[in-house]
Design a protein around this nucleic acid. Structure first.
Lengths: 96, 96
DNA sequence: TCATCAATTCGACATGCATCGAAATGTCAA
DNA sequence: TTGACATTTCGATGCATGTCGAATTGATGA
């Protein structure tokens, strides 16, 4: 169908996403990133009681899963939710 | 909307489901249960190279998450996929 | 250049969890 | 009752991972 551009996920991709979503803190981070744009690591840390090291680790997991995109801008990291990946995972679940 | 009866999940429920889906073996089991009805533990074991103890553990996790229903019939356990829960989780993800 | 700040990497630790074999429980048929 | 079979529980083991502090990298401004 034209318009529904959710590509199919491989099992490996789906598993990466599932693992990423299995940690409640990462889901909270995802929600925050999705709620507005122009999010930097510091913004997330203001709302989550975790160390910078831990946050960095979580962000890498989310990026590896394809759930967020991290673009570096000078000192800061701009975080953006990748809704296409989330949508693809929803389709994957629908096929169960 | 009448017809879309997916109840909203609490964070705790969503997390149980996410954790249950984070193990690839459990996803395979879910797919098998969903593909046909009248599934017993033995049927699953024929397709999954795991011990009975491990399978029982996974089934309990899936049941706790609300993703399957286990009804005992004599010696056997009848396993059924709960698509309503899966659908509720898909809605949860859509709200991120 | 130097100090400062954002973010990452490193090393270590504690907890969680998938897995198994063995023992237990429960059910059916002879 | 007894034996065979399906499933569960128990206890142990090994690996994965969330977490942190400390050290590092990288960029900006004084």
């Amino acid at each position: 169908m034209a318009g529904t551009k959710a590509r199919a996920l491989t099992k490996e991709q789906a598993q990466l996403i599932a693992r990423a979503l299995a940690d409640p803190r990462r889901v909270e981070i995802l929600k925050q990133i999705g709620s507005c744009d122009c999010v930097a690591c510091g913004n997330v840390r203001e709302c989550q009681p975790i160390s910078a090291a831990t946050l960095s680790h979580h962000l890498k997991e989310l990026e590896t899963a394809g759930l967020i995109e991290i673009t570096r801008e000078g000192k800061f990291a701009r975080l953006a939710l990748r809704r296409d990946t989330l949508e693809a995972y929803r389709s994957y679940l629908a096929d169960i």
